[in-house]
Amino acid sequence: METCRLNANHVHIGVPLPGDVYDEHGQLLLSKGQILNSQAQLDHLLERGLYVELRLFEAHFKPSAASPLPVENKFDPFLVRGTMKLSLNRLLRGITDASTSGAQIVEFAEHLEAYVHTDAEAAIAACLLDQQEESRGAAHSLSSAILSALLAKRLNWAKERQRSLACAALTMNLSMMDLQQRLFRQATPLTPVQLEQVHAHPEAALAALQQIGITDPLWLKAVAQHHEAPSGKGYPQHLTETLEDGQLLRIADIFFARASARADRPPLPPAQVIRALFVEEGQGACAPLVATLVKTLGLYPPGSFVKLANSEVAVVFRSGATPQTPVAASVKTASGMPTMQPVRRDTARAGYTVAGAVAPGKVSVGYDLGKLWITDALNS
């Protein structure tokens, strides 16, 4: 049973549920027609996780508007991301049976660009805070495409090149989506068959795109080379001379692969991933791309967690005057208790400076962090 997680925008007090609701393990929590009577009950269930079948979500919870642009001055990047993830999942699966066209992928890339440019920091935060189990392949491709779009824009690449890159990021893993979902739950090392699938997926994706008539050389080459490395230790062709677009995809791919949870390890703090990429790639052919990554995300990207000098734990939600001084919101007190609501902290001020990064898996709060970005968008 393929499911989708509900958030605070989907469930309302006093309104009958349109269908059965389950927990993350598929156990029935609420029956069709049941009514929630209190905010406390709703908050508790949302924290636990509410899931419905995909067909029910699409029929009753999916927004009708396809455009990610704000409506009536409201912009919920987390809700929009959830809708885009479902749409991308369908599009990518449709490529294998030719029910998806290249024009549909290009149109999706256009929506993605509009979404990213509406609020880039909120888009990154939504990527990093999305650790849900469903549609992991689509989630990773969407996140990689968002980061790639931001990096390409900062590099001042031509519009056509940016569009080709976005399409490549969205489709680079289309041939291994089922495997990505299995690996998300698999705590053991890859089997020989799985390893072979991983090494073959760039060329398999390339073939699938050509099968539906994609001829854009930048799009196709970036997909084919997104796991090649200048050292020649990449795959599948072990190239030493590679397309810059493919290397940008590789950097974005690595960033979100390491910043995402897997069964065999929790997500790494984004700051740790950025530092590791700087050490691994910062002196070679990809040095300009890594430098652009640091300039774009800062040391502590929006959606990452940090420990402050006063021992509070906070989530970063806006960049600050310097990479070391982001604007954050405290979500845990110095004693380790969750705050009732996020408390804004300016880390440039004494007492609130960033002491270090905190792994996402070690932070649990009882409210929807996504509201931080909605509120900020409305009050900016």
Rank of each mutant, 00 (worst) to 15 (best):
A285C: 02
P288W: 11
Q283T: 13
P342N: 09
D368F: 03
S335K: 14
A285D: 08
A357K: 12
S319W: 04
P342R: 00
G303C: 11
T347L: 04
T296A: 15
G356Y: 15
V331K: 06
M337N: 15
L308W: 02
A285G: 06
T292F: 02
T325Y: 10
P326Q: 14
F317N: 02
V313W: 01
G282C: 14
T322N: 07
A328D: 03
G284F: 15
W373A: 11
P323F: 09
V343F: 01
Y367D: 12
M337T: 05
V290L: 00
A328M: 07
S335Q: 15
P338R: 06
V313N: 09
G303S: 13
V354L: 06
Q324T: 08
Q283N: 12
A350Q: 15
A314S: 14
P323G: 06
T339Q: 11
V306P: 03
R344V: 15
S335D: 13
S330G: 03
L372S: 06
V315I: 11
V354F: 09
A285W: 05
T322Y: 05
D346F: 10
A291N: 15
A329E: 14
V290A: 07
L293D: 12
S335V: 09
A314E: 15
T325L: 06
L308M: 10
K307M: 05
A291R: 03
A287S: 11
C286Q: 11
G320K: 10
T296I: 01
V315L: 08
G366C: 04
A350M: 13
V313I: 05
K371G: 12
P342I: 08
A355C: 07
A309C: 05
V315A: 01
V306L: 10
R344I: 09
K307Q: 07
F317M: 00
K362L: 12
T296K: 00
V294S: 03
G284C: 08
A359L: 02
V315H: 08
A314M: 01
G370C: 13
L293Q: 10
Q341L: 14
G361A: 06
V363W: 00
F305L: 09
N310A: 12
L308C: 08
T339M: 05
K307H: 02
K332E: 15
V327I: 12
A285M: 06
K307Y: 00
A329S: 08
L297P: 10
A287E: 08
G351Q: 14
K307S: 04
Y352E: 04
G282V: 15
T333R: 03
K332Q: 11
G356A: 01
T292C: 11
P342M: 12
T325H: 13
A359K: 15
A350W: 00
G336F: 02
T325R: 12
P338D: 01
A348W: 05
G361C: 04
M337K: 10
S364T: 07
L289Q: 12
F317A: 02
G320P: 04
Q341A: 01
K295Q: 07
Y367V: 10
D346M: 07
Q283R: 13
V315Y: 03
G361N: 09
P288Y: 12
D368N: 09
V306N: 01
P288G: 02
T347K: 10
R345T: 03
A328C: 14
T353Q: 14
K332P: 00
F317L: 03
